[in-house]
Nucleic acid binder design. Structure first.
Lengths: 351, 351
DNA sequence: GGCCGGACGTTATACGTAACACCAGGCGGC
DNA sequence: GCCGCCTGGTGTTACGTATAACGTCCGGCC
């Protein structure tokens, strides 16, 4: 049979526009069979291939610029060694940091991570992961609404949930932040400064992680013998939060002396609202955030907030998914949070 | 190193009733051959399969919950219909918005987009895309340093560069923002307000998009008969920018009346620095940014800045890559920028 | 000398899909 | 009566990889 193959291992041919070399090309160049190439490059050759042959294979692979065809490998193995990370929004710094943590652990185990930013949870059940049409082995989903969860479950893939209700019976393994405790810390911090009229600027987002925040604040106020904080909903957006703050500060009755915000972005808006009314922060009104975004130390005054270990939750999430893929159980995790007191909160004004 | 976890996808999954159905299972259920299933589900059956048979196939596929094996499809087609978007950092809102634009166009063409956030451009040449080990058809790379570009080029994949030097002979197609013009607009804005002593807070990042900013500012000042602005380098970081601003404002000689910043993040730091010195913005010193991040309207006063059409550059980038993949040329693109004057700049103080 | 077994490789196969080449029957034209 | 053509499919193959099953040489031991 005629062999039009001209390249007899003469020299490197990187990215010359031709087709990519396969393991068979490497085999030909090294004078061995394709199986041997696979063994050597897959590091499974101890005691089955001589040192000299292995070296020859590696040299040939290097010369040709061989890179394995990942689609073929995935097909053969029935696994892609890739995880999908579903997040509600990428523009929120928190999720970018979660990704970084997940990628770190994945990398250490030879796994990849692919991101799918889903504006509204996830898409229709038929094709939950719209534009991320990549073959994946498992899913890590962060801060998903309940109906979105159902759509993901349909995929039949191993699943780990981040920042989601851990008490669903038969639900997927969860990795959570101690969000409730974090907001208790904030509330106690404000109470400790003498504040008795606290307005709560909450995000109008129907996810577990935001729902528990309100419960925690209310419970902590009740424990101190105070009524629930007036709660103002707002989109997770500076302008909406500004309006909510203005509404809270101009509502009938005695003016709140503190604005407890569920997110740093809301806190930034709250600061603008307070200033628009001529109030000074923190002398006239204290403002607290939640997240410790870069934004929070860019503001003036710097924001009292709660630091979220975003990278850590990403690491734990990936670790849990790897456990699932290996057939091991993934016990639930809850990570502690720490209050970061800064300049935007101070003692309540007298009067 | 966990070895025996390779059979992750092949184990029987309780919810799905065994292993995932293949096109052959669908064929069996519908009483046709696998080839017919492929034709029907691939929408290539017009005039080759009867309406009735096609319907039967679709019903069977739906009943079984069939989803094509993407690895097998990619192997067969030699293409993955997936693009890789390489960005320097995800925590910067700009890149998240670029992604959104790229994903929009990709989706409309049945393509997927996978993100690879590369802390330092890209990784070593051997495996440029570290944790994003997914089979891809092409690359869109944004704001890459020169050496990183070389590593990407080695991949031999179609490549589109965003925010990169368009004048490299034989270089890849580029999609750019008119960054130089944007900074000229800012400079003229400040000159028009009477500022004659402008300090330039620049990012210490060796990429084209930041290099041209300094050139543009210097050229525009020279055109007005002014010496180059004292330039202070800073990491792309609030604290570093704060220090740079303090240094600029306390340097020997007459104090600058304006701080021209290459990025909104730098501007946020500059504001903090100015305030730390007891200066009011904009009465004592004007501050301008660049990007129009959400941050810029969260600051107080709101930042004069330049709006970047991030989604648009993502859309154009993906469009260019699709052209390349179709064998068509991708002419260079340059998108115009618009100045957004807000409250952080005002007339230069007299004296 | 025959036989065993380690060292060193090779041959063959399957993964699931898409598409090319073929084929059976019916029908109209000449 | 034969050809050509249209309709509605089917058999088969190849994509590139990983690995199970199978050889082959050769030194050593009873």
């Amino acid at each position: 049979m005629p062999e039009p193959d001209t390249d007899a291992g003469s020299g490197p041919r990187p990215g010359a526009g031709g087709t990519r070399p396969t393991s068979r090309d490497v085999a030909r160049a090294a004078g061995v069979s394709q199986a041997t190439v696979s063994l050597v490059l897959g590091d499974k050759w101890r005691g089955r291939v001589s040192e000299r042959t292995a070296r020859a294979v590696r040299v040939a692979a290097g010369d040709l610029g061989y890179r394995p065809n990942l689609a073929a490998r995935s097909l053969r193995l029935g696994a892609t060694r890739t995880a999908l990370l579903v997040v509600p929004a990428l523009t929120h710094e928190y999720f970018a940091r979660v990704y970084a943590g997940a990628a770190e652990v994945a990398d250490a185990h030879g796994f990849g991570v692919v991101l799918y930013p889903s504006p509204a949870g996830v898409g229709p059940a038929r094709d939950p992961f719209g534009s991320a049409r990549t073959a994946i082995d498992g899913v890590i989903a962060s801060s998903m609404a309940a109906d979105a969860l159902a759509a993901i479950g349909d995929g039949g893939l191993p699943l780990v949930m981040l920042d989601s209700d851990p008490d669903v019976p038969g639900g997927p393994p969860t990795v959570n932040l101690a969000v409730a405790d974090g907001l208790r810390q904030v509330t106690r911090h404000l109470l400790g400064l003498g504040h008795r009229r606290v307005a709560h600027i909450a995000a109008d987002v129907d996810t577990w992680t935001f729902r528990v925040r309100t419960e925690a604040v209310t419970a902590e106020l009740a424990a101190a013998g105070l009524p629930p904080a007036p709660r103002r909903l707002s989109a997770l957006d500076v302008t909406a939060a500004r309006d909510a703050a203005v509404a809270a500060l101009t509502a009938p009755g005695p003016r709140p002396t503190a604005l407890l915000c569920d997110d740093d972005i809301l806190a930034a808006g709250a600061c603008k609202g307070a200033r628009a009314l001529g109030l000074r922060i923190p002398q006239d009104v204290s403002v607290s955030g939640f997240d410790d975004l870069a934004l929070s130390s860019a503001l003036d005054p710097e924001l009292t907030t709660v630091r979220l270990p975003a990278e850590s939750i990403g690491r734990h999430g990936m670790t849990a998914l790897l456990a699932l893929l290996a057939g091991r159980p993934a016990p639930p995790v809850e990570l502690p949070l720490t209050l970061v007191p800064r300049a935007s909160t101070a003692s309540a004004p007298r009067g």
